[in-house]
């Protein structure tokens, strides 16, 4: 069974952490993954850096630019991860933009992911209809779960379609924003969380964007299965380095 499915069966709120591969230092990737697992994180999103990350705010943009400057690229990331399953069992997802995957070759990319033990992909700019038409079979062949996003503006009808196409969890973007916006969750988000809960979807939902402390984590997970922290974690890395990971996780739960 895919590690994501296994994790989702556990009776707990999932804490997922996003970080950008190759940042702060080129060879931090494996250490960060190991430390996150050691400190009780449930799921990890490894960011494959891209020159033009449209859906990201300044924090992740800057980490991507820095990672690329450090020399990160697709082949190198796979190289760094090739023995990762000898040391960790946590579910691993690669999150990135579609163009680098497309250039690597979607089939070749998926194949490498399977060899390494990657469990899923999040490619925000690979749209639902293109995925279904051109790539679903390939993802399935290599046992990869594709994770789709929904937002407060996504219609119920479209959410149902996305639910049908999903087989892991749905990434619930908390508000109309790029990553890293931190206004906290107000009544609008509560209404959105409740609307989605009432849809009673087949796939569990994990909330991302704007989660930066215990309070927002708890708010976001009241009606959902978990939450994802990205920008806040990268900011913490900036300030305290890898050594600061245990402290950061403790502030969340």
């Amino acid at each position: 069974m895919n590690r994501i499915h296994q994790k989702l069966k556990e009776d707990k709120k999932i804490l997922s952490i996003y970080f950008t591969a190759g940042y702060p230092e080129l060879n931090d990737t494996v250490n960060i993954i190991q430390d996150l697992e050691k400190n009780g994180v449930d799921l990890i999103e490894i960011g494959l850096p891209f020159s033009d990350p449209l859906a990201d705010g300044p924090t992740i943009q800057e980490s991507s630019t820095a990672a690329l400057k450090n020399g990160m690229n697709t082949e190198l990331l796979f190289e760094q991860l090739k023995d990762i399953r000898k040391s960790v069992s946590i579910p691993l997802i690669i999150m990135g933009y579609f163009n680098p995957v497309f250039q690597y070759g979607v089939e070749a990319f998926c194949k490498r992911c399977k060899e390494i033990g990657i469990d899923g992909l999040i490619l925000p700019d690979l749209p639902l209809d293109v995925y279904l038409q051109d790539y679903e079979a390939t993802f399935k062949k290599y046992g990869l779960i594709n994770i789709f996003l929904i937002t407060p503006q996504t219609s119920d009808e479209r959410i149902r379609k996305i639910d049908d196409a999903s087989n892991g969890f749905i990434y619930m973007v908390s508000s109309a924003s790029t990553t890293g916006a931190t206004s906290g969750f107000g009544s609008e988000q509560q209404a959105y969380f409740e609307r989605i809960a009432a849809l009673d979807l087949n796939n569990p939902q994990i909330v991302g964007f704007g989660i930066n402390n215990a309070e927002t984590f708890n708010q976001a997970t009241r009606t959902t299965s978990g939450a994802i922290i990205g920008s806040a974690f990268i900011k913490h890395l900036n300030q305290f380095g890898i050594e600061g990971i245990p402290d950061f996780i403790k502030t969340i739960r």
């Binding site: 700019d125 749209p127 293109v130 996003l149 937002t151 503006q153 996504t154 479209r158 973007v173």
Partner: peptide
Amino acid sequence: GAFIPEMLYP
């Protein structure tokens, strides 16, 4: 085509 993140779909 339209290779856009879901946020831009609506």
